[in-house]
Simulated assay, not measured.
Amino acid sequence: MVERSILELGRVRLGGTRRDALDEARTLAQHAENWGYKRLWVAEHHNMPTVTTAATSLVIAHIAAGTSRIRVGAGGIMLPNHSPYVIAEQFGTLENLFPGRIDLGLGRAPGTDQLTLRALRRDPGNAENFPQDVLELQAFLAPAQPGQRIEAVPGSGTNIPLWILGSSLFGAQLAAELGLPYGFASHFAPGSLDQALAIYRTRFKPSEQQARPHALVGVNIIAAETDAEARFLATSQQMSFANLVRGARQLTQPPIADIDSYWSPQEKAHAGQMLGCSIIGDADTVRRGIDALLERTQADELMIVSDMFDAAKRLRSFEIIAQIMEA
């Protein structure tokens, strides 16, 4: 059976608070573990008023403390923003608090703009060291060796599962070379999906962590009782992507009846490319969409984004998706 998981951004909606967003993320995780979801990840983004997961390890702790079985992790930590040693300490702490439930997905992008990168006191050139940083982090999470003078406490010996995440061929090549599971961000950048998966699978080298390839595919799915309702609910996400194209920073907006009255043809085309890997509809429509995506990608796992304004409708969407995938 294909595993199902969730990507959570802790989005702040118009009229809501940042605390609401963080608590709704934990509530979703509580329901998700009862609906059979494998894991819930949060993503590191900075300087985005609608996203509350910048302090990623703290958000993971908040969610893990309110759940008991579902795996919780980063999807991902943007490693060029951090010292591998500090990440080993942070995630080692999480693993000791919530043993056997912590994942660590790693990305090479900064997850922010260049001005904010300067505020983080990071050099944009750090991204070039990503492969070496992954290996350094992996070493800090391994058991300490005799004579080792620098130990990540309490990270050493935890062997937290590492994932390589990306939306380009670089991540696929690195994940294959290191023998790590690979997640492709087709929920916002689907252009290289098929080529990246092919490279990952053909070049994969077994490792101590991973004996065979494991490909996770990000996908936007909005499920509702009818196709019309799902299309209506999806307009909140479509407006968010239109705002991203515009460079406008707005909270998640309530859905609207006519999305074409909101975006220009150019914005629609640009956002449409980013949202190209989306499935929107009732249970039957979503089932057909999932079947087609799995036939196309042969994914081992789907990481689902169901981004909408109404928290209750969002929970219902994830419930419908779980019922479809269980069947």
Rank of each mutant, 00 (worst) to 15 (best):
V286P: 00
G289W: 06
W263K: 05
M274C: 13
A271V: 10
R249P: 11
G281E: 06
P254N: 03
P254Y: 05
L251Y: 13
I290N: 04
Y262Q: 06
A257Q: 12
K268M: 06
L251H: 14
G289R: 07
Y262W: 12
Q250Y: 05
A248V: 13
Q298D: 15
Q253T: 15
S261P: 05
A292Y: 01
E267Y: 10
Y262C: 01
I279Y: 02
Q266G: 08
A299W: 02
E267N: 09
Q250K: 14
T252G: 03
S278G: 08
L294W: 01
P255F: 04
A283G: 06
Q253P: 12
H270I: 14
L275S: 09
K268W: 03
Q298P: 09
D258P: 02
D284N: 13
P265F: 09
E295L: 03
P265H: 12
A248E: 15
Q273M: 15
Q250G: 02
E267V: 08
G247F: 06
I259F: 06
A269H: 14
A257V: 05
S278N: 06
R288H: 08
E267A: 11
P265R: 11
G289L: 04
G272P: 06
T297R: 07
I280M: 02
A292I: 01
I279K: 02
S261W: 09
A292P: 01
E295V: 07
G272Q: 05
G247R: 12
R288N: 12
G289N: 10
D282Q: 07
Q250H: 14
R249W: 14
A271N: 02
C277H: 12
H270R: 09
A269Q: 14
P265T: 10
A269E: 12
R249C: 10
S264F: 07
S278L: 03
I259T: 05
V286I: 14
G276T: 09
E295F: 00
S261Y: 09
H270K: 15
I280Q: 01
A299S: 15
D282T: 13
P255S: 11
G272W: 09
